[in-house]
C-alpha cells in the first residue's frame, strides 16, 4: 500500500531521577516506527502544550504536533483521542507500551481499539510490510521467539522496547517544528482522586529460588554420549526444545 495514513500518540514523560520532563521512551520508539513507515505521520498529544518534551519529539523529524491543551492534569484522555482519531480515520495508530508518568497502566491503546472497534496488537518490534488491508508485524517478548503476525487494518499497534531505538532529536528541527494547539477540557478522573498517595518506600525485590545456586549435583565420569543424552533429556523435560518427528 502506498503511503499509509499513520497516526502516532505521544505523551510527555518524567525522568525518574531528575524529575525533568522528557520524551516517554516507549512513545519515542513508536515515533521512530512511524517515521520509518510514513514521511509525515500525524502526531497527537493531549496535555500541556508548554511541555519541553514536545520539542524533543519535533526534533526527531516531525513538522507539527497537534496538541489538545488541557488545563487539568490527570484526566481521562481516551474520549478526546477517540474523537480526533475517528475524524482522521487512519490506517495505523502507533503508541508506546505504557506512559512514563502517572498511573502508567498501559490501558490507553486497548481502550482506543475497543472504542473505535478496530484490532490491536501489543509488543511489536517492527512493522515489516503494509499490504492491501493487512499489516505484517513482528511481535517480540523477552525470553520468547519472535513471531510474525498479519493484522487487518485499521489497527492500533503498541511498539515494544525491542523496536529499533529512537533517533536522536535535532536541535534545529526542534526549533523549526510547530505545535497546533487547540484548547479543550477533559473529564476529571474522579475514581483516581479517591486513592491514597504517599511517597514510595523502598522494598527489596524477593530473590527467587534457584537464582544463585542450582540444585543438581555435578555428574562426573560420563562418556560424551551419555553427557549429551543427559543434556537433551534436560532440555526436553523443561520444554526448551520440542521433540520433533514423533
Amino acid at each position: 500500500m502506498r503511503d499509509p495514513k499513520v497516526v502516532v500518540l505521544l505523551s510527555a514523560g518524567i525522568h525518574p531521577v531528575s524529575g525533568k520532563a522528557r520524551m516517554a521512551p516507549g512513545d519515542a520508539c513508536a515515533l521512530e516506527m512511524a517515521l520509518r513507515l510514513a514521511p509525515r505521520p500525524v502526531a497527537l498529544h493531549v496535555g500541556d502544550a508548554a511541555n519541553s518534551a514536545l520539542r524533543d519529539y519535533l526534533g526527531m523529524g516531525l513538522d507539527t504536533i497537534e496538541v489538545l491543551d488541557t488545563s487539568a492534569d490527570g484526566g481521562d484522555i481516551v474520549p478526546a483521542l477517540c474523537e480526533r482519531l475517528a475524524a482522521l480515520d487512519p490506517d495505523l495508530v502507533l503508541t508506546g507500551m505504557t506512559a512514563d508518568a502517572g498511573e502508567a497502566s498501559g490501558m490507553v491503546p486497548y481502550l482506543i481499539a475497543h472504542r473505535l472497534g478496530i484490532g490491536h496488537v501489543s509488543s511489536i518490534a517492527s512493522v515489516e510490510e503494509i499490504e492491501a488491508g493487512e499489516a505484517i508485524v513482528v511481535q517480540a517478548y523477552r525470553g520468547a521467539a519472535r513471531r510474525r503476525l498479519a493484522v487487518p487494518l485499521p489497527a492500533v499497534i503498541s511498539a515494544s522496547q525491542f523496536a529499533p531505538a529512537p533517533r536522536a532529536p535535532a536541535f534545529a528541527r526542534a526549533r523549526r517544528g510547530t505545535l497546533q494547539v487547540t484548547t479543550g477540557t477533559i473529564e476529571k478522573d474522579h475514581e483516581a482522586a479517591t486513592w491514597t498517595r504517599m511517597p514510595a518506600r523502598r522494598r527489596p525485590r524477593k530473590i527467587a529460588a534457584g537464582q544463585t545456586a542450582g540444585d543438581g549435583a555435578p555428574l562426573v565420569g560420563l562418556t560424551p554420549d551419555e553427557a549429551a543424552r543427559r543434556i537433551l533429556d534436560f532440555l526436553k523435560d523443561k520444554t526448551i526444545i520440542q521433540e520433533r518427528g514423533q
Binding site: 545456586a213 542450582g214 540444585d215 553427557a227 549429551a228 543427559r230 534436560f234
Partner: peptide, 18 residues
C-alpha cells in the same frame, strides 16, 4: 555450583556428541 545440570567433562568431546 550455579548450574541445575552440571557435567564434568571436556567440552570438545561433549559438543560433537550433542
Amino acid at each position: 555450583k550455579r548450574a541445575d545440570l552440571a557435567i564434568i567433562a571436556d567440552a570438545q568431546q561433549v559438543m560433537p556428541a550433542l
